[in-house]
Design a binder for these strands. Structure first.
Length: 803
DNA sequence: CCCGTCGTTATTTTT
DNA sequence: TAACGACGGG
C-alpha cells in the first residue's frame, strides 16, 4: 500500500472530496490516490484540450504510472505541461499546492507559471520553480536537518574561489578556480569529500582534502553554494525519515522540464522526493529531448533520460514529434544531422508548417567577410520590412561575437548580445548584496571580507584575518569585530568601529519592523545601505573614471526590491531571487521594445526561436571544437541540432576559409557537420573548398553547389530572390571575387569613403604600391589627419563604408 | 591607493 | 589579437 493511504484527512494535502474512490481498471495499485472521478470538464478546459494534437492530449490526460514525454524541438511541450497542470487541478481536483513543477531556468519557470495560471488560476498555488529555487526553499524549511543557517545566502562561483583561497592559502588563484569547478562538479554528481569516486573527477590526491577544507569553511559561514541547493536536500531526504515522509505527503505530483539536462544530483532529488522506491504513489512526469542534451560538461547526464524507464517502473513513453516551429527543409537538415548520433531514444520530427525556403550554406574568405555578409543580408531585408528582431546570429564561442559587434556598430545595426556580463556579477551590485547578505547572516565570511574595507576604511587583510579567526566556530563576524576591533592599530580600529556602527544600524533597520505589519518596502532598506555604506559615493567616483553607470545600477537594484517587505524574511526572499535569477537584466537598454539583432552562443539559444537564424563559424576546430570524438562529438552535434531547430523560416550557415584566432590567422576546414546535412538540402554559395567537395565524393554529393572551377567564382547565379546576386557585392563595398586580381584594390580604390577605428571617417586620396609589392592607401580623415595604411593587414580597423 | 605595464591565456555555463 | 590578472612605481 502506498504510504499516502495512511494519511489522516487533515494531513492529506489533497482536497479530494471523494477520498480514494477512483482509479479505473487497469493498473490499480499504480494508480495515485488523487485520481478521484471523471468530473465533467469545464467548457474552457475542453477548449484547451481541443487545441492539442492526439499525442499532446494523451500526455495531458495520462495518469497512473510515471510518464516520460519525449518532446522534440518546437513540439509544444510547454503547452502540454501547463495544460497538464491546469487539467490536474480543474478536472482531477488535485490540490494545487501538492503539485511541484521544476525547470532549469528562471525564465522557463516564470513562463510556465504564467501560462499555467492563465489556463487555471488556482495554479497560482502550485510550486512552479527552478530546481535550485526549490532546493533553497527546501533548505530553509529544513535548515536544522540540513545543518545550515536558515538565513543562508548562496555563494556563487566567485565566492567559492575566494573561500577556497582562504581555506587553502597555498593554492594559487588558478588552482583555486580549478578546484572550485571540480567541487561544483562533484556536487553535481552528489559526491561528498569522502566519496571514493572523487578520483574519477580529479586525479590530484590533494583534492579530497581541499574539498573537505572548503566544506568546513563553508559550514562555518552557515551558507551554501549552488551545488548544495540540490545535494543537501538529497542527503536530508536520505537520512531523515520524518522529512522524507513529510515531503511525500506534500508533493503528490512532480513534473520536470528539460529533463535531459538534469544531473545526477537532480535525478537523486527527484527519486527521493517522489519516493518511487518506497511506493509513495507520487505521480512523476518528466519532459525532455535527449537530442538536445548539451550540458554534459556541467554534469548533465543524458543517461537520466535514457534510463528513466528503468528507474521508474511501468513508465509510459509518449513522443511529441509534430513540430510547429520550423519548415520541412529546416527539419530535414536537423534530422539528417542528429541521426548520426548513436545512443538516442530516436524520434523523427514532422513539419506541421509545411515547406519553405531552402536553407543556405555560404563559404566566405574570413571572419570579417562573414560579418559583412551577415550585415548585408540583415540590412537588405530590413529595407524590405524585415525587423532586426527576426534575426539571430549564433556562434560557438563568445569571442566570436566581437567581429559582429564591430561590424554592426559601424553600420549602425542595433544588436543585443545575450549572456554577456550579467547584472548580478557587476562589482557594485555584488558590493551592495554583500551588505545585505551580511545583514541577513552575520557569519558570512565572503560578504564580510568584501565590504568591511569597501570603501577603504583602513581594515586590511591582516585585520580581517584576525577578526575571522576570532569568530571561528560560527560566531557573528560583527560581534567578533566589536571584540577584536579595539586591539587593532589606530586606523583599523576606527575603521572597524565605523563598520560595526554601520552594521548595527542596518540590522536594527531591517529587524525593527519584522514583528509588526510593516508597510515599509525593502527598497528603502537598500537605499539606506547604498547611502550609508558609502558605496554610492565610491561608485559614483568610479563612474566618473570609467564612464559606467554603477550608481544607477545600484538604484535599479533598490527599485527591483519594491515588492518585498522590509523584513528579514523579505530580505532573504529577495536575495534568493537575485542569486537564483541570472536573467535580471536591468538598466542600459530602456524598455524591451527595441528592434535589434540577437547575437548569442549556441548554448544560450536553448528554448528560443527566431524567424531567421545564421549559424556562423561552421569550421572544423571551431564547431565542432577541436577534434572532439565519441560522446563529446555527439554533444557538439546535438548543439548543432539545437541551433538548426531554433529557426522558424530561414536558416543560413556560414563557414570561413580563414580565421584569426589567438593572434594568428589559420586556414580552416569546413565543419564535418556540414556534410551530414544531407544531399540537396542546402543551397551552397561562395567558394566551396576542394576538400569539402572531395569528401562528398563522386557519386554526387547532391549539394546544389556552384562549381569552384567555374569562372563565376562560385557565387550562385540563380538565386535572384534573396540578395545573393554576385552583382551586389560591389555596391556594398564588398570584394567581388570576379572583379579584380586583387580584390583589395577594387575595394580600397581612390575616392572610397572609409572609416577607421581610431581616426573616424575619411577618404582615400591616393593609392600605390610599396617596395614589397604591398598595396598602400593614403587616407585624408575628416579630423584633418592624413595616414597611410596597408589594407591587406588592416582590414579590420580600416573599413570601406557606403556613401 | 591608484594607475600603468607586463605576462598569461585563451570553450560551452540554466543555477 | 585582446582581455584580464598580477605586480610595482608614483
Amino acid at each position: 500500500m502506498p504510504e499516502s493511504e495512511q494519511l489522516t484527512p487533515e494531513s492529506n494535502p489533497f482536497s479530494s472530496d471523494t477520498g480514494s474512490a477512483a482509479a479505473s481498471a487497469e493498473s490499480l495499485d499504480a494508480m495515485p490516490d488523487w485520481v478521484t472521478d471523471d468530473a465533467p470538464l469545464s467548457p474552457s478546459m475542453e477548449e484547451y484540450l481541443s487545441v492539442l494534437n492526439p499525442e499532446q492530449k494523451q500526455a495531458v490526460m495520462h495518469e497512473g504510472s510515471a510518464l516520460l514525454i519525449l518532446a522534440g524541438a518546437g513540439s509544444g511541450k510547454t503547452r502540454v505541461i501547463t495544460t497538464k497542470i491546469a487539467y490536474l487541478i480543474a478536472a482531477k481536483h488535485v490540490n494545487p499546492s501538492s503539485i511541484l513543477a521544476v525547470t532549469f531556468t528562471k525564465k522557463a519557470a516564470n513562463e510556465m507559471h504564467e501560462r499555467a495560471v492563465a489556463l487555471e488560476p488556482r495554479a497560482e498555488h502550485a510550486q512552479i520553480r527552478t530546481f535550485h529555487s526549490f532546493g533553497a526553499w527546501f533548505l530553509r524549511v529544513n535548515a536544522e536537518a540540513a545543518g545550515v543557517d536558515p538565513n543562508f545566502t548562496v555563494y556563487d562561483d566567485d565566492d567559492m574561489i575566494t573561500l577556497i583561497t582562504k581555506a587553502k592559502p597555498q593554492l594559487t588563484r588558478a588552482q583555486a578556480t580549478h578546484c572550485a569547478h571540480k567541487i561544483a562538479l562533484a556536487k553535481d554528481y552528489c559526491m561528498t569529500p569522502a566519496d571514493p569516486k572523487l578520483g574519477e573527477l580529479e586525479s590530484d590526491p590533494e583534492f579530497p582534502e581541499i574539498y573537505r577544507a572548503y566544506e568546513a569553511r563553508l559550514h562555518e559561514t552557515g551558507n551554501v553554494d549552488f551545488g548544495d541547493l540540490i545535494m543537501k536536500p538529497v542527503l536530508v531526504l536520505k537520512n531523515n525519515a520524518d522529512v522524507r515522509h513529510h515531503m511525500h505527503m506534500r508533493f503528490r505530483v512532480i513534473m520536470v522540464d528539460e529533463y535531459q539536462d538534469s544531473n545526477v544530483a537532480q535525478f537523486l532529488l527527484l527519486q527521493a522526493l517522489s519516493g518511487v522506491e518506497e511506493n509513495a504513489g507520487t505521480y512523476v512526469c518528466v519532459v525532455g529531448d535527449d537530442d538536445q542534451s548539451i550540458y554534459k560538461f556541467r554534469g548533465a547526464e543524458v543517461q537520466n533520460i535514457l534510463t528513466f524507464k528503468e528507474k521508474f517502473p511501468g513508465t509510459t513513453l509518449i513522443r511529441l514529434e509534430r513540430n510547429y516551429r520550423s519548415t520541412a527543409e529546416i527539419l530535414l537538415i536537423a534530422d539528417n544531422v542528429v541521426k548520426n548520433n548513436e545512443g538516442r531514444l530516436g524520434k523523427t520530427l514532422t513539419a506541421e508548417r509545411g515547406s519553405g525556403k531552402q536553407p543556405k550554406l555560404i563559404f566566405l574568405p574570413n571572419q570579417d567577410e562573414e560579418a559583412q555578409f551577415c550585415a548585408d543580408l540583415i540590412q537588405k531585408t530590413h529595407k524590405t520590412g524585415t525587423p532586426y528582431n527576426d534575426w539571430a546570429i549564433l556562434y560557438r564561442t563568445n569571442a566570436q561575437s566581437l567581429t559582429f559587434e564591430t561590424e554592426f556598430l559601424h553600420r549602425k545595426i542595433p544588436y543585443t548580445v545575450v549572456g554577456s556580463l550579467k547584472f548580478y556579477e557587476r562589482e557594485e551590485i555584488k558590493d551592495v548584496l554583500a551588505f545585505l547578505a551580511l545583514a541577513a547572516n552575520n557569519r558570512d565570511e565572503i560578504a564580510f571580507r568584501r565590504v568591511v574595507n569597501k570603501p577603504a576604511r583602513g581594515v586590511g587583510e591582516t585585520s580581517q584575518d584576525k577578526i575571522i579567526s576570532a569568530a571561528a566556530g560560527g560566531k557573528s563576524l560583527v560581534d567578533a569585530s566589536r571584540e577584536v576591533g579595539p586591539n587593532l592599530a589606530k586606523k583599523a580600529r576606527e575603521g572597524v568601529a565605523h563598520f560595526v556602527e554601520l552594521m548595527e544600524e542596518f540590522t536594527s533597520f531591517i529587524g525593527a519592523d519584522s514583528s509588526e505589519k510593516s508597510t515599509k518596502k525593502l527598497s528603502s532598506f537598500i537605499e539606506l545601505v547604498n547611502e550609508k555604506s558609502g558605496l554610492v559615493e565610491y561608485h559614483t567616483a568610479q563612474d566618473e573614471i570609467a564612464g559606467t553607470q554603477r550608481a544607477a545600477n545600484m538604484q535599479e537594484l533598490a527599485n527591483s526590491a519594491v515588492l518585498y517587505p522590509c523584513t528579514i524574511a523579505g530580505l532573504l526572499d529577495f536575495l534568493d531571487h537575485i542569486e537564483l535569477d541570472k536573467t535580471l537584466e536591468l538598466t542600459d537598454e530602456e524598455s524591451g521594445t527595441t528592434d535589434s539583432v540577437t547575437l548569442i552562443t549556441l548554448h544560450n539559444t536553448k528554448g528560443l526561436e527566431f524567424p531567421r537564424v545564421i549559424i556562423t563559424g561552421m569550421e572544423m576546430g571551431i564547431f565542432p571544437r577541436q577534434d572532439k570524438t565519441g560522446a563529446e562529438l555527439e554533444e557538439e552535434r546535438r548543439l548543432f541540432y539545437v541551433g538548426i531547430t531554433r529557426a522558424r523560416d530561414e536558416l543560413y550557415l556560414t563557414s570561413c576559409a580563414m580565421r584569426r584566432m589567438y593572434g594568428r590567422t589559420d586556414y580552416m576546414e569546413p565543419s564535418p557537420f556540414l556534410l551530414e546535412t544531407g544531399r540537396g538540402t542546402l543551397k551552397v554559395l561562395g567558394h566551396a573548398p576542394s576538400s569539402f567537395r572531395m569528401n562528398s565524393s563522386d557519386d554526387g554529393d547532391g549539394f546544389e553547389d556552384s562549381d569552384s572551377e567555374q569562372s563565376s567564382g562560385g557565387y550562385e547565379a540563380g538565386s535572384r530572390d534573396d540578395g545573393f546576386k554576385g552583382g551586389d557585392y560591389g555596391k556594398n563595398g564588398l570584394s567581388d571575387p570576379r572583379a579584380a586580381k586583387n580584390p583589395l584594390e577594387a575595394k580600397f580604390c581612390k575616392g572610397a569613403r572609409v572609416y577607421h577605428d581610431d581616426y573616424g571617417y575619411g577618404q582615400i586620396i591616393k593609392t600605390d604600391m610599396s617596395g614589397e609589392g604591398e598595396y598602400v592607401v593614403t587616407v585624408q580623415f575628416e579630423s584633418g589627419e592624413k595616414k597611410k595604411f596597408m589594407p591587406e593587414y588592416q582590414a579590420k580597423s580600416l573599413m570601406v563604408v557606403k556613401e
